[in-house]
Design a binder for these strands. Structure first.
Length: 591
DNA sequence: GCCGTTTTCGGCCCGACTGTTTTCAGTCG
């Protein structure tokens, strides 16, 4: 069993213990261990070594033994026994809004409810409403929650969220009683998908702002309406929450509601170590602490909170408790990439394959964005579903680009292709065909069900080709739609480093990969990134904004991203692999 | 179950809202 699978088991154990009414801190210990494990990036052997596991913060003797057993045998008697006390379907009840372990336990023990279907029946026939601690309102809310759950998987793409977030922000800003307004939560941290949007406003007169917020034209259900907090479900199924706080509380609330939960816990612990308690409103003197606490700091903005805790300002994207505290303490936080650092981009399609805009339109749009270059890469011939180009059409496209380039000044179109990586890792064109191009993106588009080792070998073989400039969408995932295909990312990263292949950060909001979690490793290994929109239209160039969010989340700076290089410097990077091969004179330079 | 210039016991983040209660438990973030 690998680290991710073991983490899933630990999460399941936590839920089962919760159902059993176990000590909440014991439950938290399992949840913490589940979160800590994948971040430690242990090898298969280290996962079997209890002593190595115990070095990880949050994993002690007992859980280390359990992880080791899972890694070695793929099973755990303790877990198997736990599972016997509850039916497996019961886990789906945790996904319902308003239903936690206590209520699930009551429903199961008193009414033998174990699934969405049996819960729905019991809500309708009145037996839920008759249960102690439940009532008619709860039954009604559960029915609505079941319906919502069925209608929406519960997550939304960053693109959907972005549209809603910007429009609600604008609405709230228009209110005369509003001071500051921000979106917090995972949206501000630029997670690849979000479950809800958390808005935060400062005001001394919250009521009207709450009313304006809830009076949204797309509001379907009002979930909460209090004096400082409101919550609604939009017709799309996206939940939006609003908090209104005072001007002085705003930085604290912004920090608190931006999260992540793990980041907040660490912040509070840092405060406690100084004798302060930190909540979403302020610093205060912690109760029951021995010794004299440091005097309370004055805080004007979010940076002031970090400063008070001896930290550089941590950008929201990094707040995942993945090393940002150590870096902030040592003044080693990266100068994260910004959208204005981009000088050009690659991976754009045109009407020649499956794009909606012509070569000329795409080029013009890129110039209007202030870019210096645009890499055109239509599909290769095997992607016939996408009208991929054969050698003849590819050559004709090259001539057209050359002629356009002659008429351009200070802007260049690079001619490339998104070349299919065939089932055996060979490419869709001969090396001679590839050599005529400025750059080549190699991507997998078919035979997605290969085993992890087959897929990994396939991609590594493709990267060993000196004409492959960069690797496209590494795992083929479509967020909220299609799981990634199986591929061993650390091996891919090593191969990219060894061959000098750039890895794409596909900025299309449905893809957003290589996933941000892997970029620190890639950078450590010396792999370069290219942030590519995978644009199929002029509008698709805007995906670069989402790519920047993901890149920042992956700790990337402009030095790590090749398309921050200006025209005049980028050409050399595109040619580097072939030049190295020519210099070494061997076909198997990289093997 | 984890952790330790509070170190082997006794803490572990905490406030808002809802619904079911009549002072609070459960859930959420």
């Amino acid at each position: 069993m690998n680290a991710d699978e073991i983490a899933d088991v630990l999460e399941s154990i936590a839920q089962l213990l919760e159902l059993q009414g176990e000590n909440p801190f014991k439950i938290r210990a399992y949840t913490n261990a589940a979160r800590a494990l994948p971040g430690a990036a242990l090898s298969a052997d280290e996962l079997k070594d209890p002593e190595r596991l115990e070095e990880i913060d949050g994993i002690g003797k007992a859980i280390a033994e359990k992880i080791s057993t899972l890694a070695a045998t793929g099973t755990l008697p303790f877990y198997e026994n736990l599972k016997e006390s509850f039916p497996p379907e019961i886990f789906q009840l945790f996904d319902l809004q308003g239903l936690g372990a206590k209520k699930i336990k009551a429903l199961y023990e008193k009414l033998n409810i174990r699934s969405l279907t049996s819960l729905e029946r019991a809500c309708n026939d009145g037996s839920v409403a008759g249960l102690a601690g439940f009532g008619p309102k709860t039954a009604q809310n559960l029915l609505r929650a079941i319906e919502d759950h069925r209608r929406h998987a519960g997550s939304f793409s960053i693109a959907t969220a972005s549209e809603v977030a910007e429009s609600i922000l604008e609405r709230l800003r228009s209110h005369p009683d509003v001071g500051q307004v921000e979106v917090a939560g995972s949206y501000r941290r630029r997670k690849e998908t979000v479950r809800d949007l958390d808005f935060l406003a400062s005001s001394s007169a919250p009521q009207g702002i709450i009313e304006l917020f809830l009076d949204h034209p797309d509001a379907e259900t009002i979930l909460a309406r209090g004096p400082t907090k409101a919550s609604m479900l939009l017709r799309s199924g996206l939940q939006c929450d609003l908090r209104v706080v005072s001007r002085l509380e705003f930085p604290f609330a912004l920090n608190y509601f931006t999260g992540s939960k793990e980041h907040n816990v660490a912040m509070r612990n840092r405060a406690l170590s100084r004798g302060w308690s930190l909540n979403e409103y302020r610093f205060s003197i912690a109760e029951g602490k021995k010794g004299t606490p440091a005097p309370l700091p004055e805080v004007d903005d979010e940076a002031g909170i970090y400063q008070a805790l001896g930290l550089d300002f941590i950008p929201p994207e990094l707040r995942e408790d993945r090393g940002e505290f150590t870096a902030a303490e040592n003044h080693e936080l990266p100068d994260l990439i910004r959208i204005e650092n981009l000088r050009g981009t690659f991976h754009c399609h045109t009407t020649e394959s499956d794009g909606r805009n012509t070569l000329e339109e795409m080029s013009l749009a890129a110039q209007e964005l202030g870019l210096q270059y645009l890499g055109i890469s239509d599909h290769s011939k095997s992607s016939f579903q996408a009208n991929g180009l054969d050698e003849k059409r590819l050559a004709a496209q090259g001539e057209k680009i050359a002629s356009l380039n002659r008429a351009l000044e200070g802007f260049r179109i690079f001619h490339g292709v998104e070349c299919d990586i065939l089932k055996d890792g060979t490419l869709d064109y001969s090396d001679d065909g590839l050599a005529s191009l400025d750059f080549v993106i190699a991507s997998v588009h078919n035979s997605l069900t290969q085993s992890e080792s087959e897929m990994t070998d396939r991609i590594v073989r493709a990267m060993s080709n000196p004409y492959v400039t960069m690797l496209g969408h590494v795992t083929g995932r479509l967020l909220l739609t299609r799981e990634p295909y199986k591929v061993h990312i650390p091996t891919i990263i090593d191969a990219a480093a060894a061959t000098g292949t750039i890895i794409e950060l596909n900025a299309n909001p449905r893809r957003l990969e290589l996933d941000w979690r892997w970029w620190p490793l890639a950078v450590e290994k010396g792999v370069k990134c290219s942030i590519n929109p995978d644009a199929h239209s002029v509008a698709g160039l805007q995906h670069l904004h989402f790519g920047i969010g993901a890149a920042r989340k992956g700790w990337l700076t402009k030095k790590d991203v090749v398309n921050c290089l200006p025209l005049g410097k980028i050409e050399g990077v595109l040619q580097a692999k072939r030049v190295a091969q020519r210099r070494n004179g061997a076909a198997d330079t990289f093997s």
